[in-house]
Design a protein around this nucleic acid. Sequence first.
DNA 1: AAAGATGTTGCACCCGGGTGCACGATGTTG
DNA 2: CAACATCGTGCACCCGGGTGCAACATCTTT
Lengths: 337, 337
Amino acid sequence: MSDSDRVAKRVTGSDVAREAGVSKWTVNRAFTPGASIKPESRERVLAVAERLGYRPNLLARSFATQKTQQIAVLIDDFKNPAKLPFLEKLSEALQSQGMIMVLININRHHDHIDAIMDIDQRQLDAAILFGTDFRDLQLEGGERLRSHLPLFVLARNSTIASIPSVSCDATAAMTQMCEHLWERGYRRPGFLTGPRTLSTALGRRRNFLDFWESRGVNHVTVISTNTYASSAAADKIREYLTDTPSSERVDVLMCENDALAIGALGVAKGEFGLRVPEDLAIAGFDDIDQVSHPLLALTSYRQPIEEMVDEIIRMILGQSTSGSVSLVGQLKVRSST
Amino acid sequence: MSDSDRVAKRVTGSDVAREAGVSKWTVNRAFTPGASIKPESRERVLAVAERLGYRPNLLARSFATQKTQQIAVLIDDFKNPAKLPFLEKLSEALQSQGMIMVLININRHHDHIDAIMDIDQRQLDAAILFGTDFRDLQLEGGERLRSHLPLFVLARNSTIASIPSVSCDATAAMTQMCEHLWERGYRRPGFLTGPRTLSTALGRRRNFLDFWESRGVNHVTVISTNTYASSAAADKIREYLTDTPSSERVDVLMCENDALAIGALGVAKGEFGLRVPEDLAIAGFDDIDQVSHPLLALTSYRQPIEEMVDEIIRMILGQSTSGSVSLVGQLKVRSST
DNA sequence: AAAGATGTTGCACCCGGGTGCACGATGTTG
DNA sequence: CAACATCGTGCACCCGGGTGCAACATCTTT
């Protein structure tokens, strides 16, 4: 263990400069790719830097350049496993651009306003509202926070004109899904949604209803839960099946997401002994890993995660030409329909 | 829209000082809780600050104090839904302490060494290795990165003496689980593990084997997968059930985590038509949301997430007395055993 | 009313790297 | 070899708050 290892103090650019017999600005240049510096000088500086264990202080750099290379991702629902692959792809894409992801939990102790103020004060470069319910932002936000923080919405439609969004094309998705259901011969459709306002932002219900209307099916049963939890769906479906004689029931239940579909399936099959899809067909949305399980085998729709993330990265980097973008995903037919 | 709204420039403490007729240090004091400042001065400064929309620049503060109030969380497996509740609780706990969570994706493009160097250069206050496979760190790390970044391991045992860990007590967990299985009368145990080295760090296999040995059961069938994916488990179990006549099969299969258990259950029940638990009992670990589903109903073990997170926060804040800590969770018996 | 204790304020200087410019060194051209 | 372009280097000063100390103001005490 040499003396230098025992020194707790950080090595700065000036230390390297002194040791290498140049000015600290030359050290800076040695670490700046396009800078004007004599090759020998650069090599010498880099050698000294390596020997001393010098690495530029990125915090100081951020402070000087006003760019932290950090992107905030706001999320308010950790119950939905569909979020994980998005987070994985997002963090990977950001890291490949030299940025890192700051994950902010939006909950009753910490709303959008708090989060955005904090993010803004910390000088993060942008914030992504990832599937969050940002009504609070619309209601009381706006003028209170005069921040220049660029905002983006991911995986739902933006309800604020100035904030661009990247989402899955709900019209295309529901058309594909419904045409499949139509071909299978189902004619008494039901729709299971989550909380009203959140549901609207996804646009799935609207598109589902439109499809059946266009085919001359005028009645669609709509059941709403107040959270996106499987258990809430289970409760609502148990109630529905109990109250509705089998002759009057829907023959296909489209669920707004897989978590709801899983809850519904459990009750229908497990508690009421219904055959799926013969007695009741069920479909979900998101195509989370577990729905492909042989005991569930739910028909679902996969969002184009990679493309969505790539597009939002382009937006953040300012390389995107257009405003909000909707991308088409892929129908996954399984034995539940 | 007043003139001040049109100005894109940030409002700094000096701006407020000028406007309020005090020095910038007094402005600073107005925003520092315990500082020595006359109440009237503070009020006046705060009023001016409010009017101008001033908020302290946390990046500048971080730079000056050498504390970013940011904690990195390293994760290398986004497939396991059991990670989500940990992330939720972690982010909430950090935010309640005025810190935020930086989520770093460890993958083949970005290993522990890269991540730690980056985190260190960005001056984050600490890093949590959350269930990651950090053999690479042990092998080539150490001396190459001379960083003073505090490291902690969460949800697995630390294999590096200098890094404290917070994990679920595998001995207590497996004892509880196995005593339950023993009472139920199972005597031909099997264990389904993930990749060898990762598995060792969890300690579950070791404790499972020890229990049966102590009860005089000398043979335990061990099956290994090379990832923790449900599909990998399904493949291995399909192979096992195909190759093993029913008279020679295990009567209970303990799986290292729920994802594996779900895969095993799907094949046993769905493909081989086995009755669970009569023909084969199955148990998992982590008690993720989906295993309580009526169609799965897997016996599992819930890690004490809240306590684990609270403990690691204490460690980060330097309030923890001890070194590594193991906490006891809770057995959840369902109809699969 | 003077001496002391306490409260309040201003001030240099620090954190560590980034920017634009000026000056010197080197190289090219007529 | 002079005139000019180009490259390489050093330098002030910036980013916006934090720290310790000195100076000043105010309030107590005797």
